[in-house]
Structures are given as structure tokens and as C-alpha cells.
Design a binder for these strands. Structure first.
Lengths: 319, 319
DNA sequence: CTGATTATACTCAACAAGAGCATAATGAGG
DNA sequence: CCTCATTATGCTCTTGTTGAGTATAATCAG
């Protein structure tokens, strides 16, 4: 930051004592083990690892790594920023800014002493797992309750709006299920006070829907992380952050399915992976289950450099 | 925030006096006028509107809107968060967190009294405009200098790494030019100390490359905003935030081209727009230029509700 | 009146994506 | 040892989607 240059923010920085805030770093750390996506939690599996951004931290990222490691003993590999928000419902005249991150690892070398646990993320969002078909909770509980909520609105416009949003976010028929809308769905449930977090501090209200709650807005942050990951696996080779050094294509497929919450077409999945040149054979084969032995693959590290690819959708022209 | 629930962040919040930081809100506000993408600036066109997040602000977004309106007289419509980072190079023992946003508007009803200006964004990134072919600055200045920088590395590995990154980010041949890599390109230039911001506070160094600099890291934030917008227009109908209520398809195309910095195939562009059902005819026709009169269209507001679509890339299966 | 300029309709080839069939190895269980 | 469910892997076929042009008809500038 230079001195001779104009600095519009300078008035601000000079007297920032009056604008003091504190910043919390919050981590959504994901691993996939035994075909189940899990999230790293602390405190009765109701909270995500988190802590304040301190003077000693070199950067936001390193502060986050430090906190996660201190609280769970787990070192982080890949991380990316999710979202920043200012919490409204804190008390005191001090504002808290929360900066959330998504981290991907493998559930390993964890420090046993630290008080953490890996929880299947579908414990928190049971309606998001469509690998075995549309979950019955969805049909039998969520949709009826959401419909009721939509219909209870006085105003016709509101009613129609709610119905439309419910239909869009929860559209059944499996074909149209959009697994990326994790956050929208959670927020709808929150708005309809169908999750425990929404009824806290209020009088009873309708009993909440299945799914483990978390403190504060941690479950919403988790939803944000899941949504981001489900989107990202489609255009960036991030799944490999969750895989061991060598793996079979079926293992890879199961991991993707675990994340997406839906099944994929095996043959086409292979075609996709291969044509993108993402992996190479290690030369070994393994026969873990029945069936012929499967080839083992490893991720081609080079693609990280090349294939930061971004997909075009514009009808470009030469000339 | 409840009291009976476990709160891992609580230790932090209790004694957060020691972790006090201040938060700055920074806006990249974009409009497209006369086929030129412009950014809203203050202070000699070297700074983005910004200001501290204050106690009086209801939320980060509203704080940002307040600052932009105060500094430029321009009310904001669509905004979305870009990125949050903690500045290293500030002085004092107080940390500053910067939260940046992207805003889209039309260059209109600006308060004349406020000291702001709209600047073409290619003033800051002249190498990003490929509408008239590969800019000569790129071929004649940037690439040679970057190559020199790559080759000046002692270590062979570093040299190869630099060459690879330069090739990837700046790949000429037009076909392979990836307009989304705005940030990567700026960061490479920064790393190679080819932009003014990188040589400040140091002794001379190599003279910087064409392109107007900004204070602090504002130009990097602008690059982030441009990159985000260039990516986003491909999968979400955000261009319409920049369009007047009614427009011809050619105007729409010119706007997209201005943003992407490259030309698109007219017929295919129309096919794309129409098949996605994004617009509807107003019924009027206008003949602004030569050629037959063009139909005027308006954006179909409904798609905002429906078409929050996300594109699948997984080979899903039924079953 | 001429011609450059634009709107708009179509065509075609190349390729990507969805869906399913076919064949060949295996290990589990009798 | 035999049978069969289970899996790896190769291929086909159909249907979109995308890139690239050709063709035709309105206009306005000069």
C-alpha cells in the first residue's frame, strides 16, 4: 500500500476503532470413506471447526489451517473459500464476520487425541441422498410439509411464489432432481421453520424434519460447501483430492456418486474419465470384490497445470 | 445463536478484543455503454468505490450499497460476492479484511455531484480485448517480456514452470485464448513485475507494460470481477442486468462481446438465445443502423425463477 | 439507384451425451 | 468342482449440441 497514491479507504482505516469487528474462520472439511461423504466436526458433531482470525496468522488460509489442526489434529490439503457473511444474530455491539472455507482431504492420519469426529453428511441432509432412489422422507415428510407451508400463506402471490420455489428446488421425478440445489433446499426448509435451527429461541412451532441440526448457522455453511463441491466436481478435477494415490475406476465412480448423491452410468462415466485423460494406469490390477480384477489408476498430476480448463458456452467465431 | 448449545467459537468471541480487525467493502461495478464495458471508479479513476463495514450497516451487502451510493451517487442493482482476503501489506497491528463484490448496472441516473467516473475496463487491461483480433501489445510487448522473465530463472524447474504458466494463460493463436483467465494473467504480470503495482516501493525495476494501474490491489480485484463475469455470462442470464428494458439481438450480442472480449458467431448466438427461451419479442422493430429493421426483445423475467439452472456434466443413470 | 450492411432462415458436418447390449473374468456358495 | 451373480470393459446406436457456412431479403448512405 503506497502513500503517494490516493486512498479512498483511508478515512476508514484511520479511525477504524469505531468499526472494529472480529472475523471467524469456519471450515467445511470433506472426506469420502467407504463410499460415504463425511464432514469433519467437533463438539458432539454439531459444529464445524472454527476460530477467530488472529494477528499471528499469516493469511486467512493459514489461520484456518491452524484452527482445524488445533481442534481436530487434521492437516488440510486443498482448500478454497466459500463465502463471507456478517452474522446478524450475535449480541453485543461487536460485529462478527464469518469467512467459510471448503477443504478436501482423506480421512487418515488424524490425531487421535483431538476431540473431533467424521460424520456422514447425509446425517445432516438425509433428503439429499438419492443413490438408492428418492428418499422416503422426501416424499412422505418434506414435500407434504412444504406444500402445507406454501398453502398457508394468505397472499395469493406469496402462495404461488412459494409453490414455485418448492417445486423448483425439490422437484421429484428423479429425472429433474437437481443435486446442486442443496443450499436452496435447506433455506426453504429454514424459511418454513422445518429445521431445528429455525425454531430455536422461538416457541415450539412445527416439529422439525429429520436431519441432525448444528449450532448457529453451521448447517447452512455445510450446505453451501456441499453445493459447491457438487457443482465443482463437474468442471474441475477435484475428486482426486479425495482419492488415495491409486484407485480403481469403480472406486472413483463410487466417490463421485457419494458426493453427487446419485448414481452414474458406469460405461459413460468411464468414457468421460478416459477421454479427458485425467488418469493413467499404474500397471497393477486388484480384485477386491467379485468380478474380474480391475486396473488401478492414478491421477495425472500434469492436468492440474494444463487442465485448469474453463468451459466455453459462447458461440465464438474466428475472423 | 443459542446459549445451551455448544459453541466452539465462543472462546474466540469472548476475548475478541485481541483479535480486532476492520473490514473493508470494495465494489467492482460494471456497466456496458456504447459497446464498451466500463467500471465505476473514484479518485482519478485509480480506485474502486470502497469503505469500511460499519456498525450501522444491516448487512455486508447493504453496507456496500451505502458506500457506493455515497461515493458515486449510483444505486446498485444486482450484486454478488467476489472474494475475501486479508491484506498483508498494511501497516499497524490492525488487520484489514477486504470483502469484494461484483455489481451490475446500467450507466444512468448517476448523481452528477459525486466524484466518480466510468472507465472502460480495457484501459486497465488492454491485452484482454480480442474483439479486433489479438492486440498488438500482447504479441509485441507482453509475451516477449514474459518469456524473458521465464528464462531469467536460474532453476530449470522454475523456468519450465514459468514457461508453462505463461503459455497456458497467454496462449496465442486466438483459438486457444481463454478469456476467463483474466486474474491468472494479471497475477503472472504482477509476479514478473511487469505492472506498476508490483514495482511500487521497490527500486525501479523493468518499466511496466501498458495498462492503467490502480491503488493498492484494486486492479487485481477488478481482474477478479471481470473473470467472474466472463465466466458467469455463460451459464447464468446475468447479461440482462446490463441491458436496457428493450433491446435488439445485435445489441445483446455486442454487450456479450464487449464483456468476453471476443466476437461471437451471430447466427449461432441467436440460436442459443432463442432456444433457451430467454427473451420475448416486444412487438416493435427499430432500424438504428443500416439493414432491415430489427425486432426488439425484452428479457423474460420468469426465467429468473425457473432457469436458475445448473448444468449437469455427470453421466447420470436412471435405475 | 447502387451497394454495403444487417436481419433472419436454413443446412451440414463433427462431436458429445444418453442408453443399452455383449462378452469375459472372477469369487461365493453349494 | 460347478454355477451364477457380479463386475470390468468394449461397442453400438440414437439424439442432441455446437461450429461454420450459405442464402435471401430489407434497409439506408451516398
Amino acid at each position: 500500500m503506497q502513500d503517494k497514491t490516493i486512498q479512498p479507504t483511508s478515512q476508514a482505516q484511520r479511525n477504524n476503532q469505531s468499526h472494529a469487528v472480529s472475523a471467524d474462520l469456519i471450515a467445511v472439511v470433506i472426506a469420502v470413506t467407504d463410499g460415504e461423504p463425511r464432514v469433519l466436526t467437533i463438539g458432539e458433531a454439531q459444529a464445524l471447526p472454527s476460530g477467530p482470525f488472529e494477528l499471528g496468522h499469516r493469511s486467512l488460509q493459514s489461520g484456518l489451517r491452524a484452527w482445524v489442526e488445533r481442534q481436530t489434529g487434521h492437516p488440510l490439503g486443498y482448500i478454497e473459500q466459500l463465502y463471507t457473511f456478517a452474522d446478524r444474530d450475535r449480541t453485543g455491539d461487536e460485529r462478527v464476520i464469518s469467512i467459510s472455507y471448503l477443504g478436501l482431504t482423506r480421512e487418515e492420519q488424524a490425531d487421535r487425541s483431538a476431540a473431533h469426529s467424521w460424520r456422514g453428511w447425509y446425517d445432516y441432509f438425509p433428503w439429499e441422498d438419492h443413490r438408492a432412489g428418492v428418499p422416503s422422507i422426501l416424499r412422505d415428510i418434506l414435500v407434504p410439509r412444504l406444500s402445507a407451508w406454501a398453502d398457508e400463506a394468505e397472499d395469493l402471490g406469496v402462495r404461488r411464489d412459494r409453490r414455485q420455489r418448492v417445486a423448483y428446488a425439490f422437484d421429484l421425478d428423479d429425472r429433474d432432481w437437481n443435486e446442486e440445489l442443496v443450499l436452496q433446499r435447506y433455506e426453504l426448509l429454514y424459511e418454513a421453520t422445518l429445521v431445528a435451527e429455525a425454531t430455536r429461541g422461538r416457541d415450539g412451532g412445527s416439529p422439525s424434519v429429520p436431519g441432525r441440526p448444528m449450532i448457529a448457522d453451521h448447517r447452512r455453511i455445510l450446505a453451501t460447501g456441499i453445493a459447491r463441491l457438487r457443482t465443482k466436481i463437474k468442471y474441475r478435477p477435484v475428486v482426486f483430492e479425495l482419492m488415495p494415490p491409486a484407485f480403481t475406476l469403480l472406486q472413483l465412480q463410487r466417490t463421485v456418486e457419494a458426493l453427487a448423491g446419485r448414481l452414474v452410468h458406469k460405461q459413460n462415466f468411464r468414457r468421460l474419465i478416459e477421454q479427458q485423460d485425467l488418469v493413467e494406469e499404474t500397471g497393477e490390477t486388484v480384485s477386491e470384490t467379485r468380478g474380474p480384477p480391475a486396473k488401478r489408476f492414478r491421477f495425472r498430476q500434469t492436468v492440474l497445470a494444463e487442465r485448469t480448463v474453463a468451459g466455453t458456452k459462447l458461440p465464438l467465431s474466428r475472423a
